[in-house]
Design a protein around this nucleic acid. Structure first.
Lengths: 223, 223
DNA sequence: ATGAAACCTTATATATTCTATGGTTTTTAT
DNA sequence: ATAAAAACCATAGAATATATAAGGTTTCAT
């Protein structure tokens, strides 16, 4: 019988062990599953590299946030995904993330375009099994919370914000004063005001205060 | 026991009857289902209007293409959805469509943002029942083919085309010659050439012919 | 009441995009 | 193989949109 090889990457050993026990104990029709695990970015990359010229994993289960071994730029599950797409493009990638916020999901769906995205609170035995089957045969597999975020994005797909708009929204959301934004956004004060006005009109909160703008951008998944 | 009221709109009576028989025969835990049907745009709108000040439907099942009663601008299920969102915003809307092309799905997801989208070839008893439950309790519900289209869109979300770009791609795909496009796009010939060049660079098919551009835009779900 | 920040307006400057023109290369039909 | 048609490319000037500077008004907190 065919063996499906899975590599589960998560700094919480309990998670990877959970995936391993559940999936290896499941009786699939056409195959059995073997789950390999890795706890760090480096360990995961090494296992992937070793697999390139031999068996190659069928599925990668990636947590997004991994604890850092050394100081420096954060090495996340997203980076593992980007790396894996290059060296083993045929391997299916599924993110297992505690993040259900739109911003993060949107980012992952663009940079890696994974075959699956599961929000951790929605993972259980049944969904894990369904995920494996769907990802292998007829991707993608998204859990409900991921789907809800995706739906929001699709509904607001006509609204396009450039980097400056996003920065303005971000600084606004953390309470930065408009006049202080010139230090962060590389635009003149009137331009920033102008863009804020424009954003308010785009989000349908004309003539309302900044709080309304922040709330609405959050609702639509832009912050 | 609570009754869930559904209005199914489709010009093929076989479809609406199928939904009716299956759903009314299903034993749901907390409710039973009553399915009303309509075969035309006008009949559907009338039933919706009549419901506004009385029971109000819980779910609308809408086919996109409806046969035309009179000549004139096509009145589609999409229009019914837009109308329903205005007069009965709390009613859940699900499209039951033969279209699985990206363009159509993307459009619907923006204009109506329905709680569900089912591609007809994927509809069966089980999926119908799951759809009702999901849409009522935890939307959205999309079938796999719809999901595949949505995934494509999300992965290419950074590429933004305006109306003129879309027209150029469309006319290109139906074999219109570049020089003839000036009659359709309201741009000068050099501008069209320029946009084509730009599109090719955006889609990563620089220095290749138009066929490559068309193929790539199709792959990414823009045509 | 007063100062600070936010908000708005107008004129000018800057940048982007479109067009017109004229050329070169590629394709197509004979 | 060759001539005509279409596609492709480059440049300069026109049109459009966006940013800035300067100055005024409104709003809010103390």
């Amino acid at each position: 019988m065919k063996t499906i090889r899975i590599l589960a990457v998560d700094d919480h050993e309990m998670s990877t062990m959970g995936y391993k026990f559940i999936l290896e104990d499941t009786e699939f029709d056409d195959f059995k599953v073997f789950v390999d695990t890795a706890k760090t970015f480096d360990a995961a990359v090494e296992k992937i590299e070793n697999s390139v010229n031999s068996f190659q994993y069928d599925i990668l289960l990636l947590d997004i946030q991994l604890s850092q071994a050394v100081e420096g730029p954060a090495k996340t599950g997203e980076d593992i995904g980007i790396f894996a797409r290059k060296v083993i493009p045929k391997t299916k990638i599924v993110f297992m993330s505690s993040f259900s916020d739109n911003y993060r999901i949107n980012s992952i769906l663009k940079t890696v375009d994974p075959e699956g995205y599961m929000v951790k609170t929605e993972i259980d035995q049944k969904s894990l099994q369904a995920m494996v089957l769907t990802v292998l045969n007829n991707p993608p597999y998204y859990t409900q919370k991921a789907l809800a975020a995706i739906r929001k994005k699709m509904a607001n797909d006509d609204i396009v914000l450039d980097e400056k708009d996003k920065k303005i929204l971000h600084f606004l959301s953390i309470g930065t004063k408009t006049k202080d934004m010139v230090n962060h956004v590389s635009l003149s004060l009137p331009s920033i005001e102008n863009r804020k006005r424009h954003l308010k009109s785009v989000f349908g909160v004309e003539k309302q205060n900044d709080q309304a703008l922040i709330t609405e951008s959050r609702n639509r998944g832009f912050i």
